[in-house]
């Protein structure tokens, strides 16, 4: 399938023709977007996937191509991130492997679902509405957390909550010991989390860090120091599986787009990481949450405002 975009003003040699998206795009714009997202990843520690896909859609990249290519680009910063966390021994490989088993199952389901939604013509709607839901949720939570932290610091007290609470989730069968994380829990729980994150990763073109990180902390009760490295470890495989399946099932992976994006993002991550000690984390999160909320509002507006034309076309290949 081939979607067209309305922006057609280009008289410039900086444009590069994307072979799969089948349209030219300004190469510096894409490089800039990649670097910006990399900076956020490096500064805040969460993946930029959930911002990258909507930005690409705003730039006129067809949503299916945006989702699949972002999955591809996510592999690079995740590999880079795992390597640096591994060096500091911050990766629980056993937990990561259990999570990725679920993730691979989930992302496979996700790609099949993606294919099905494309056939019935609801793919764009599902991608956009899931973004509205998740971005507004995450944006609001982040805003709340960072504001709370800022206010507390002003008052001059920082209290720490309990590491994790035991609930019915810890009573599930197939209990396994995860030495590194100092946990003795049912293997079903991380697999289930992996499956859910995998499905979302495939449909939304995200690594799922924004879901898996809180899930690991609050549901599994993993030590915070291990969470980022371990989630990145599983994201590599989920993103890789999604990329290969999207490429073979839907032919929507644009390697040129992905490569330009990831070149920008890997550099951005490193720059961002160098600045983390200079800028205060909670203020960063405050800014990021504002960006996320804005993006979700823009997407929501696209869905609820009366369209200028009720009709649209899809030109099949």
């Amino acid at each position: 399938m081939f979607y067209y975009n309305y922006t057609n003003n280009k008289e410039n040699s900086m444009y590069i023709y994307l072979p799969i998206a089948e349209q030219p795009i300004h190469s510096l714009a894409i490089l800039g977007v990649g670097t910006f997202l990399g900076l956020i990843m490096g500064l805040v520690g969460v993946g930029g996937g959930f911002l990258l896909t909507p930005i690409l859609m705003f730039l006129g990249i067809p949503p299916p191509v945006a989702v699949a290519s972002v999955a591809n680009q996510l592999v690079a910063p995740s590999v880079s991130g795992v390597l640096s966390h591994w060096k500091r021994s911050n990766v629980d490989f056993k937990m990561g492997t259990v999570l990725l088993v679920g993730g691979v199952i989930g992302s496979s389901i996700g790609v099949i679902l993606f294919n099905f939604l494309g056939k019935i013509g609801q793919l764009d709607f599902v991608i956009k509405s899931s973004y509205v839901i998740f971005l507004s949720l995450i944006g609001t939570l982040m805003l709340y957390e960072s504001l709370r932290l800022i206010l507390r610091k002003r008052k001059g007290k920082v209290s720490r909550g309990k590491l994790h609470q035991h609930n019915w989730l810890h009573g599930l069968p197939f209990k396994t010991r995860f030495r590194k994380s100092k946990l003795y829990i049912s293997i079903l729980l991380p697999i289930l989390i992996g499956v859910i994150v995998g499905i979302l990763a495939a449909i939304m073109g995200v690594g799922g860090g924004f879901i898996i990180v809180p899930a690991m902390i609050y549901l599994l009760g993993m030590p915070t120091s291990l969470v980022v490295g371990t989630s990145l470890f599983q994201i590599i495989f989920v993103a890789a599986n999604t990329t290969i399946l999207q490429a073979s099932q839907n032919q929507t992976v644009d390697i040129v787009l992905a490569t330009i994006l990831l070149l920008g993002s890997v550099v951005g991550v490193q720059i961002g990481a160098k600045f983390t000690n200079i800028i205060k984390g909670e203020y960063l999160r405050l800014i990021l949450s504002a960006i996320i909320i804005l993006v979700s509002l823009k997407l929501l507006a696209d869905l609820i405002t009366v369209p200028s034309d009720y009709f649209s076309i899809i030109i099949h290949r």
Binding site: L74, A76, L83, L262
Partner: peptide, 8 residues
């Protein structure tokens, strides 16, 4: 992507 990630 793996190569570029590792390279950087």
């Amino acid at each position: 992507a793996v190569l570029i990630g590792w390279g950087t």
